[in-house]
Structure formats: structure tokens, C-alpha cells
Design a protein around this nucleic acid. Structure first.
Length: 419
DNA sequence: CTCTGTTTAGCTAATA
DNA sequence: TATTAGCTAAACAGAG
């Protein structure tokens, strides 16, 4: 073992107070062995496939967080053009079946598994193989208005993955950090008619399909909003060294470690002036909140320009879409957005590879409604009209799709997470 | 007071 | 091997 501190959630299962340990819920797809990982089952061979780094098991004999967390199916390992239906955590359908009726008892799940005549092994408390960023993305993409409050994001994750019903303080802190730290998430202020605590969070319109390239755990490249990046760099530049207080009033000295961690290109004063000129904002007024407002102000522009899009060049269309706030994007907007922005941040996949085929593709978790957007993107990206990139079993699964919207999750009256 | 949001720091693991 | 992405902890501030 390289370290004892390997994302220790799974080793702290005993801290759970409201969940019986090892409540079965995730299904196992025996076809997992076909995906190039040589994976006869989730519990053991997943580890064999990539866990040669000492991260396989924790002291309890359980798969460590790495069971989902290590390089399960790195894109190069697990891509297959003939991917079988989603396995294990991907089978949110079965998961939600187990959850949906309120009957999460081990016995009932076991009975269903036997009734299915399908061998299933479930690891309710294993950490899902999705990064927090991907979980947040799932939640937002899965919401009717493509934006959620923080508590709704929490609720989505806990509803989908029982693992996250424990140690909430830990992962929720990470969620908040991810939201703040990653440019792909945009904070949308509440409007007066929607009072409440906290803002809405949405996806940056230019973030593209961060995970639809098959990278469900680690993105090839972190999305960076160029404008925000420029702002950050301008605030780090020597010209700001005298007053480097941030928006929360906290002093932010330039630590060496931080610079190494967040290494970026240097922005000089000229660039800052260019940016402020471009935005029509005095340089001293440049901050992230202003950028968010700019996004919001682009809403109206987007609608008026929508009718002209078909006659636009690729570059023009891209420019328009990049300036558009996600709130204004209909599904076809987003499909076009994905079409135009893909490739700027993500590497190309091999020929024949369709994003939704990946075993941990987010589309396999999302309801059909959300997947329709991605399907459009897929069609445009690959130039053919697939009836569906997803197996029928996924589409027809009763537990994903509209049922989800009928749940209490997205009804404002449903309240917030019980913490 | 609690929740939300931001930031720093240190670490592991994946990737170029 | 260096760099980068992601996770966790923690401190802090502001809003409700």
C-alpha cells in the first residue's frame, strides 16, 4: 500500500447511521467482461483491470474507494463500439427501482434479483466511479431548467447513490469546492420571484461534453472559461499585488504552492485592458460576478439570433453559442453548442466510438429527456442519424426518465436535504 | 446559527 | 518524470 489515506470514505462506512450496511441495490451486468477490461464482475476483476497501484483493497477486504475510483475503464481500456448495457453503477435504473418504492431492504432487493433470474451483486456503499464534477453535471443536466441549487444537487446525488447518504459533511464540502473551483459551473443569481438561500448552478455553455468522451472520472482537460481565467490572472499579476483581497474579503497571498497547483499562463496588463475594453467594463470592475451577469445578459441576444443560425458560418455560430447563457438554451441550442465547442477542450475519440457507448457514460444515467439533447449532439458529431445510441433496455427502463421528474426531487415544495 | 460560497493547502493518481 | 485533474480538509465570510 502506498498510503493509508486513499479517499477513505469506504473505510468509514460504520459511521453511517441511517443505512444498513451493504444494502443491495446496484445491479451487476455480467457482460462487463466484454468491455476490454477483462472484468467478470465489478467486485474483483475491476480491480485487476487497472489497480496495479496498490489501491485495490482497503483493510476491510472491501474494494476501496478505488473500486469505482481508480482507473476503471480508462478510455483506452474500456472503449468498445459494441458496449453492452450499463453495468453496476451505471444501472441506475435498478438502483432507482430499489430506492423508488421506498423499499430498500436487502431482502426485497434480493428477491427482485432472484425474480429477475439475473445474477446481481450489489455494492450500495461502494463509491460510485464518478467524479464530483460528473455528479454535479449529471444533476444539472438532469434538471428541467438545467440549473439547480446546491441543496438540490446534494439531494440528486444522495437519491442516486446511497453511498452519499453517509459522511455528508465530507463530500458536500467537496461538492461546494468543485462548484466554486471549476469554471464549467456557473452561478446564476436568484431572481426576486424565486427567493431563497443560495444561487442556482448551471453548466457553462462552453463547457461542452466534458464527460461524453468517455472520461467519466477524469477529464482529459479541465474546462477553463477564458474570460474568468484572464480575470484570475489579472488579479494575480503584480499590478494587483498591493490589494489582492478577493470577493469574500479574504486576503489571497500568492503562495508558491498555489501557483504550482493552478499554473496558468501569465496575463499582463495589456490583456486585462483588452478584456475590459472588450466587455465594456472598467478593469477595476472585472470579477467573476460580472462575468456571470454578462452571461445572463446574453439571453435575449441569443433568442433574437436564433432564427439566423441556420445561415451562419460555423465560426459565427460558435461565437454566438459561446456567449449564450445555458438558461436560454433549448435542446437544439445545446446540441449545436456541443457541436461547435467540442474538440476545443477534449481529445478526439477513435473512429467508431460513440460517446454513449462508454460503460460509465453519463447518458446512461440520465433520463431520456436529457439524453435527447446528447443524442442530437451525437448525430451531428458523427454525421448519421442513429435511432438511439442506447440499448433499448436503457431507454425503456422504468426507473429513469419521466418518473424521475415526478419525484419530489424537483418540486420546490419538496424541501431541501435533511442534513 | 446554519447554509452557501470561496479559497488555500496538501495529497493521490492519471496522463502527457 | 513533470504536469494536471481530482479529493479532502479547513478557514473564512456573507446571506438568510
Amino acid at each position: 500500500m502506498l498510503s493509508q489515506k486513499l479517499y477513505p470514505e469506504t473505510s468509514t462506512m460504520s459511521t453511517s447511521s441511517n443505512m444498513s450496511p451493504m444494502t443491495p441495490s446496484y445491479s451487476l451486468n455480467p457482460c462487463m467482461s466484454q468491455i476490454g477490461c477483462q472484468v467478470p464482475n465489478f467486485g474483483s476483476s475491476m480491480l485487476n483491470s487497472g489497480m496495479t497501484n496498490g489501491m485495490g483493497m482497503n483493510g476491510n477486504g472491501m474494494a476501496s474507494s478505488g473500486m469505482g475510483y481508480s482507473n476503471i475503464g480508462s478510455p483506452t481500456q474500456c472503449m468498445s463500439s459494441s458496449m453492452p448495457p450499463m453495468s453496476s453503477y451505471g444501472s441506475v435504473g435498478s438502483l432507482r427501482n430499489d430506492l423508488g418504492g421506498g423499499d430498500t431492504s436487502p431482502n426485497s432487493a434480493l428477491q427482485r434479483a432472484r425474480a429477475d433470474k439475473t445474477y446481481r451483486r450489489s455494492y450500495t456503499h461502494a463509491k460510485p466511479p464518478y467524479s464530483y464534477i460528473s455528479l454535479i453535471t449529471m444533476a444539472i443536466q438532469n434538471s428541467p431548467h438545467k440549473m439547480l441549487t446546491l441543496s438540490e444537487i446534494y439531494q440528486f446525488i444522495m437519491d442516486l447513490f446511497p453511498f452519499y447518504r453517509q459522511n455528508q459533511q465530507r463530500w458536500q464540502n467537496s461538492i461546494r469546492h468543485s462548484l466554486s473551483f471549476n469554471d464549467c459551473f456557473v452561478k446564476v443569481p436568484r431572481t426576486p420571484d424565486k427567493p431563497g438561500k443560495g444561487s442556482f448552478w448551471s453548466l457553462h455553455p462552453d463547457s461542452g461534453n466534458m464527460f461524453e468522451n468517455g472520461c467519466y472520472l477524469r477529464r482529459q482537460k479541465r474546462f477553463k472559461d477564458e474570460k474568468k481565467e484572464m480575470i484570475r490572472q489579472s488579479h494575480k499579476s503584480p499590478s494587483h499585488s498591493i490589494d489582492n483581497s478577493n470577493s469574500s474579503g479574504k486576503k489571497t497571498p500568492l503562495h508558491q504552492g498555489e501557483e504550482a497547483h493552478h499554473k496558468t499562463h501569465h496575463l499582463d496588463k495589456t490583456n486585462e485592458n483588452n478584456l475590459s475594453s472588450m466587455l465594456g467594463i472598467h478593469p477595476s470592475k472585472l470579477d467573476v460576478d460580472n462575468m456571470n451577469l454578462l452571461h445572463a445578459n446574453d439571453l435575449n441576444n441569443m433568442h433574437t439570433q436564433h432564427h439566423h443560425q441556420q445561415n451562419m458560418s460555423h465560426e459565427e455560430l460558435s461565437a454566438v453559442m459561446n456567449r449564450c447563457h445555458p438558461l436560454s438554451l433549448s435542446s437544439d441550442h445545446q446540441a449545436m453548442l456541443h457541436h461547435t465547442s467540442m474538440g476545443h477542450h477534449l481529445k478526439q475519440e477513435p473512429a467508431g466510438y460513440t460517446p454513449s457507448n462508454h460503460p460509465f457514460s453519463i447518458t446512461r444515467l440520465l433520463p431520456n429527456e436529457s439524453k435527447s439533447d446528447i443524442k442530437m449532439y451525437t448525430d451531428m458529431q458523427y454525421g448519421y442519424n442513429t435511432l438511439s445510441p442506447l440499448p433499448n433496455s436503457v431507454h425503456s427502463h422504468p426507473s429513469i426518465g419521466n418518473d424521475y421528474y415526478n419525484s419530489s426531487l424537483y418540486h420546490p415544495s419538496a424541501g431541501t436535504t435533511t442534513l
